[in-house]
Design a protein around this nucleic acid. Sequence first.
DNA 1: ATCAACCTTGACGCATTCTTTGCGCCCCAG
DNA 2: CTGGGGCGCAAAGAATGCGTCAAGGTTGAT
Lengths: 230, 230
Amino acid sequence: MPEGSHLILIVDDEPPIRRFLRASLAAAGYRVVEAESGVSGVKLAARQPPDLVILDLGLPDIDGQEVLVRLREWLAAPILILSARDQEAQKVRALDEGADDYLTKPFGVSELLARIRTAMRHSRPGRTESPVLSIGDLRVDLSARRVLVGEERIALTPIEYKLLVTLMKHSGKVLTHRFLLREVWGPHASQETHYLRVFVAGLRRKLGDDPARSRYIATEQGVGYRFAAE
Amino acid sequence: MPEGSHLILIVDDEPPIRRFLRASLAAAGYRVVEAESGVSGVKLAARQPPDLVILDLGLPDIDGQEVLVRLREWLAAPILILSARDQEAQKVRALDEGADDYLTKPFGVSELLARIRTAMRHSRPGRTESPVLSIGDLRVDLSARRVLVGEERIALTPIEYKLLVTLMKHSGKVLTHRFLLREVWGPHASQETHYLRVFVAGLRRKLGDDPARSRYIATEQGVGYRFAAE
DNA sequence: ATCAACCTTGACGCATTCTTTGCGCCCCAG
DNA sequence: CTGGGGCGCAAAGAATGCGTCAAGGTTGAT
């Protein structure tokens, strides 16, 4: 399970617990940063925004509850509370201040990891709109892998599609034969310029383009091809 | 805090616990519906989609875990698990299947209410999914796992069903072989494109679809499959 | 133990796609 | 005017992918 690259901030004053958490989280593939006091935890979070915070309520300098409030003022990442005492009032306060979960010691590693996964699941950012390349009346919906000329849907083969997308992603620029061949066919095919002639012809025909007065794909003699800019 | 008008579904077979929960939640301003078995809980949720579910794992008819899985297939609302036993493995399983929190009996009312508030906070607004997928004269009732073509009911095997639902949930988009295999068979099977050929053929036959002029499942050669958009 | 339902695996013919080849055109230099 | 390089285009040949059928193999119920 690749949970890697997520950054977790541990705020706890007891070295053995920090060591235990660090080892468990690292083994699960997370990156870990640590703070041993409330103020340093807030500072660290500001300098290096984590994807999740594990916060122990029993801190020496300022109240853990206060750390929670300060973090929540600006940090959207999930916050998991650890506590030695099983006091219901404290739980209610922490959860209502914006904590996402509350674990009472002692707890098992696998439960902790499962609750971390659950919390991470919640913080998924709103789905970004489907990216669409659009030039003139030609539209390419990358997430649906759909190509439209006006209202009409165009069927492209895998290589035709890849070539079109490469051209459109750099529209306006001249792309050399060499670059296009490496990008679409792979590094080994950088000499086979005749591939381009064949597939550019195919694309132009399907898009309804005329090489003499091109709307979309222009030929740059001796150099490569250029897709029309917006 | 105006928590009013939120609807909570309680699934629990023990009348005293239901009574206790009903009273506590009603006092906090929630509307409550109850089911005393797994199947009736799923049915009730489909008829009257709740904003949150409280699910007891110890049910008489079907496994609570199974109820969780069935609900999660289409219900976006938070699900809180109650359990009498404090088994870590069970917690991990439930959380990874999509549960949002896990409480072990006995628990305090105020903690329960705080965890409900936290869970509600997480549920993104405007994601009221219908338990029925419908495209053309094909209808899939996710809550009952039933598939209808016109008026006729179609019997699908587990994998056929999962494949169909995956395709329909992303209808209009091209889904790559790799994506479908990981989604339906699991992460290990992402190479076995052979499976897809066999099961797509089975689905098309049962749905009365012709690969050449497909109504539902279109082939995108070299890439994957696409389910017809609405 | 027997049977049925289901998933996996392999084989084969056919369709689509990719590669290769050849020819004619245009433009420009000689 | 003439010849050659680069390009567009069409079509043949090779490779790959797809649909289909059917034979194991596994699992779970009776």
